[in-house]
C-alpha cells in the first residue's frame, strides 16, 4: 500500500492553501494513506487546519525552536527521518517546496518528480518540461521512494470535513547550525494572495511605469483581485519580483486572469494556462496573448482600464 507524506507549508498561523491541493494530488494514488507533516516552533494551530482537510489520515507535528523558519538544510533531515515508513513524499511546487524537496530526495537517494501535474498510477506521473512546451509521462523505479513537488495549479483544493488524528513526533535528528535565518521583506497587502486568488489582474511592460501600475491596483481592489505582472514589467522595475507570473515566477490557476499590456511570451503563458477564463487587453492585434485568450479586446490600456473602472460597480 502506498503511504504518502505531504510536507505542509505554513507561516506559523495559516496553513498554505497549497496543502489542500497536494492532498487532492495524493488522493489520486489509489488506496493510498495520506499524512501531513508540519514543522515549526508551535504547530498546534496549523495542525488543526490540516486535520480538517478531507482525505488526511494523520497529521504529524514536529515542533522545535530550530523549525521556526523553514530552512531547507534544517528541515530536510527531519523530513527524511519521517519518510522512513512512507513510499511517497510530496511537497508543494512553491518556493518552500522547490527549495526543500530535492534536498530530501538526495538524502533518501530517491529521484524527484518536479511539478507533478497528474498521477496516472502509483509510480507513473505527468510533468511539464521546456516551460510547458512538452509534457512527459515518467515511470519511477519502485525500488526507490518517490519524492515530488506538486504543481498546485493542476489540482483543485481538497474539501474541508476531515478529522485526522494529530500526533506529536520527536525525531532524534542532529540539525546543522551552518544555515541561519536573517529576515524577510514581504509586501504587506490587504489584497488576495496572488497564488490562490480567484481573480488576477496582471500588467506588462506597456504600463510604462511603477506609477501607472497604481491604476491596476485600484481596479483590482474594486474587483477583489490580486495583482500580477509579466517578467518584462518586473525586470523594468514597474512591479515587485513576487508579482511575477510565468514559468520562472508564479504558476497560477485563477477563475479569471486579466492580462493588460502583456504580449504573451511563452514563459508567461506557461504560468496562466490553467486559468479558467483569460481576458486579454492589448493594442497589438497580433499579440500572442490573443491566441490563448477567451475574451480579447484590442485597445489602448490607458483608455480601456479607466473605462472598465467606470463601468463596473
Amino acid at each position: 500500500m502506498s503511504k504518502i507524506l505531504i510536507v505542509g507549508e505554513h507561516d506559523g498561523r495559516q496553513l498554505n492553501p497549497a496543502v489542500a491541493k497536494c492532498v487532492t494530488c495524493a488522493a489520486g494514488i489509489a488506496g493510498g494513506e495520506i499524512s501531513v507533516a508540519l514543522f515549526g516552533a508551535d504547530t498546534a494551530g496549523v495542525a488543526a487546519q490540516a486535520a480538517a482537510i478531507a482525505g488526511v489520515k494523520s497529521v504529524l507535528r514536529v515542533d522545535r525552536p530550530e523549525n521556526t523558519h523553514p530552512l531547507a538544510a534544517v528541515l530536510a533531515p527531519q523530513v527524511a527521518a519521517l519518510a522512513a515508513d512512507h513510499s511517497h513524499i510530496f511537497g508543494p511546487s512553491t518556493s518552500f517546496g522547490k527549495d526543500l524537496m530535492p534536498r530530501v530526495a538526495a538524502l533518501l537517494g530517491a529521484p524527484q518528480v518536479s511539478d507533478l501535474m497528474a498521477v496516472e498510477a502509483p509510480h507513473r506521473f505527468r510533468r511539464p518540461i521546456y516551460a510547458g512546451n512538452a509534457i512527459i509521462t515518467v515511470e519511477a523505479d519502485p525500488a526507490h521512494k518517490v519524492v515530488a513537488t506538486v504543481r498546485v495549479a493542476s489540482f483543485e483544493s481538497a474539501p474541508a470535513g476531515g478529522s485526522a488524528a494529530v500526533e506529536s513526533r520527536t525525531l532524534q535528528v542532529a540539525l546543522p547550525a551552518h544555515t541561519r535565518y536573517v529576515g524577510a521583506k514581504t509586501a504587506a497587502s490587504e489584497r488576495p494572495d496572488l497564488q490562490t486568488a480567484a481573480r488576477v489582474i496582471s500588467g506588462g511592460r506597456a504600463l510604462g511605469s511603477a506609477d501607472n501600475f497604481k491604476m491596476l491596483f485600484a481596479l483590482a481592489d474594486k474587483m477583489g483581485a490580486a495583482v500580477g505582472a509579466s517578467r518584462a514589467a518586473v525586470d523594468a522595475g514597474y512591479a515587485a519580483n513576487e508579482m511575477q507570473v510565468g514559468q520562472t515566477g508564479k504558476i497560477i490557476a485563477p477563475d479569471m486572469y486579466v492580462a493588460i499590456g502583456i504580449s504573451g511570451a511563452i514563459q508567461h503563458l506557461t504560468g496562466i494556462k490553467d486559468a479558467k477564463t483569460i481576458v486579454a487587453i492589448n493594442k497589438d492585434p497580433e499579440a500572442p496573448i490573443f491566441e490563448v485568450a477567451d475574451v480579447g479586446l484590442v485597445g489602448d490600456l490607458f483608455q480601456v482600464v479607466p473605462e472598465i473602472d467606470r463601468l463596473i460597480g
Binding site: V113, R124, I135, T137, D141, I278, D294, V295, L297, V304
Partner: peptide, 22 residues
C-alpha cells in the same frame, strides 16, 4: 530512477472571442 515513457504536446486552449469595445 525515472524513465520517460512518453512525450506529448501540451493541451491547447480553445481560441476565444474578440470584443469590439469596453
Amino acid at each position: 530512477r525515472l524513465k520517460v515513457v512518453k512525450t506529448d504536446p501540451p493541451a491547447q486552449r480553445q481560441k476565444g472571442i474578440m470584443v469590439k469595445d469596453v
